[in-house]
Design a binder for these strands. Structure first.
Length: 471
RNA sequence: GGCGAUGUGGCCGAGUGGUUAGGCAACGGUCUGCAAAACCGUCCACAGCAGUUCGAUUCUGCUCGUCGCCUCCA
């Protein structure tokens, strides 16, 4: 299995520290608002990674942190008059609901920054002692990036140039270098009720943003682990700072593989509140929540977010959602068709080949587009074989369920169309009688009547089949 | 200003120095009482301009466009 490693900018063979096990850290949400679909693009990618690692036999330990204290949270909670813990609670709950809606597997650990302040303080003390961190006049503690020679390596940024960069505001900095970053922020009035004052040597204050991930990953995964994921915007400075903190603290290599997901754009533009194209998952799940006026199946959204390789920008469009909806229906139609096929025709050869090709492409840095192409070719091939004669359809369904361990689309659920109302059953029967009697006027009348109720009928050689129409 | 990514047919999106990506849409056909589904066929793309080459969408240079990071951000 190979991954593109941001650190080396090369595609490398994946070798975990411990055979058969993967320690994975994924940057989680800052819980000051509902997560948007760009966030979920990243979480879905991480879920795909996690599922695929498991599919390939690894035992995965995943950590996803929740950042429940930082500048925005403090600002918003003060503005709302709430304690910051009360302020974040509903967003944390909403986050977990959203993950569930998208069928994202739970991580093994969801540490919260506020629960790991001790661990952060321990690291800060150590860095102070080593002379890597220093205290500024206002009492804040900063990391001196000059003490970490490889600083900038992850983002391929030359620090000397950075400091003179036109867009780095250099006034009013109470630190030695504009790029030094805070490990501990001394309390001031703007922080209101948000502070920790039990660490006398540090002084009343709160942790900086970057130290939390170093402390939480260390607490759960140790000083050194296999994979660290996040969005590309985190490469610098966040992840770079994590490296600087953790490696200066432990003296060990922090992370072996850095995987970063590219951003999602909306209609080719950056998603931002100021552009008015900011979309949350909730907006897509309710018809009134988005400009297209439709409520989307969460699995269609998942597929959309999944179907572009994580390293490429994803151009989100409502039109694309509708295309993806059709694409999934094609697979569901196949599964439905296979579910009642118990013929002799073997499909073992095709399944074996498809599985091998799927793995080949997914092993190659999770090249999902190629992997999906393989699966759609499989769909076409199976349909052809069924056109030619009966096959062992249950094997196909079984295989799809195997693949769905990775894709997580739960298409199986869509085959089980559930019981119908008695009067609908009755109409279907009446239509069958009408057809037998070649009363096609009545037959078509019933069909369109049912269509209005969201029931699509298909006449097949095996009898009449029905499904619910898409919204 | 510095650094970087990218530009593929109606839309989304892989990939390759000379051979079909795939999905969606459209059109024609087979099947069907008619549909639906499925299958077959058509639509033969690779920003522009030069260069390298027997041959470039694939390599090089330039131009134009889009996007990102450098500042909170998935």
């Amino acid at each position: 299995m190979q991954f593109f490693n941001t650190l080396t900018r090369q595609t490398e063979e994946f070798v975990p520290q411990e055979k058969g096990k993967v320690k994975l850290y994924t940057c989680g949400p800052t819980v000051h608002d509902f997560a948007h679909i760009g966030n979920f693009r990243t979480y879905v990618f991480e879920d795909l990674l996690r599922r695929y690692l498991k599919y390939r036999g690894y035992q995965v330990t995943q950590v996803m942190n929740l950042t429940d204290v930082e500048d925005k949270i403090i600002k918003k909670s003060l503005a709302s008059g709430q304690n910051f813990r009360d302020f974040t609670r509903p967003y944390i709950e909403a986050f977990f609901e959203d993950l569930k809606r998208l069928n994202i597997e739970p991580a093994e650990h969801y540490p919260r920054a506020t629960e790991h302040v001790d661990g952060m303080v321990e690291m800060i003390r150590d860095l102070l002692q080593k002379g890597i961190a220093y205290r500024s006049e206002d009492g804040s503690i900063y990391y001196n990036i000059r003490k970490f020679p490889s600083y900038g390596e992850l983002a391929h940024i030359c620090v000397a140039e950075l400091v003179s960069g036109a867009r780095v505001a250099q006034d009013e900095y109470d630190k030695d270098s504009a790029c030094d970053f805070a490990l501990w922020k001394a309390w001031d009035e703007a922080d209101g009720h948000v502070f920790w004052d039990q660490y006398e040597d540090l002084g009343k204050g709160r942790p900086g943003w970057h130290i939390e991930c170093s402390a939480m990953s260390r607490a759960i995964l140790g000083d050194s682990f296999d994979i660290h994921c996040g969005g590309v915007d985190n490469i610098f400075p966040h992840h770079q700072n994590e490296i600087a903190q953790s490696e200066a603290y432990s003296g060990k290599k922090f992370v072996n593989y850095w995987l970063h997901s590219e951003h999602l754009q909306v209609e080719s533009h950056k998603m931002s509140k100021s552009l008015g194209n900011f979309i949350t998952l909730r907006d897509l799940l309710s018809a009134g929540g988005n400009p297209s006026g439709r409520a989307y199946d969460p699995m269609v959204i998942r597929f959309s977010l999944l179907s572009v390789p994580y390293g490429s920008r994803l151009n989100f469009k409502y039109e694309g959602l509708q295309q993806d909806e059709k694409a999934l229906e094609r697979i569901v139609a196949l599964l439905r068709r296979c579910a009642d096929q118990c013929g002799d025709g073997s499909v073992d050869d095709l399944i074996a080949q498809t599985r091998a090709d799927f793995i080949k492409h997914m092993d190659s840095n999770l090249l999902i587009t190629e992997a999906l192409a393989v699966l759609f070719n499989f769909v076409t091939e199976i349909n052809k074989r069924m056109d030619a004669g009966p096959i062992d359809g249950r094997k196909v369904v079984e295989f799809w369920n195997e693949i769905d361990q990775v894709l997580g689309l739960n298409l199986q659920d869509k085959i089980q169309t559930g019981p119908l109302d008695a009067d609908i059953e009755k109409l279907i029967e009446e239509r069958q009688s009408a057809r037998k009697a070649r009363n096609f006027a009545r037959s078509d009348e019933i069909r369109s009547q049912l269509l209005e109720q969201g029931i699509v009928l298909e006449d097949t050689p095996q009898g009449v089949r029905w499904k619910r129409s898409s919204p």
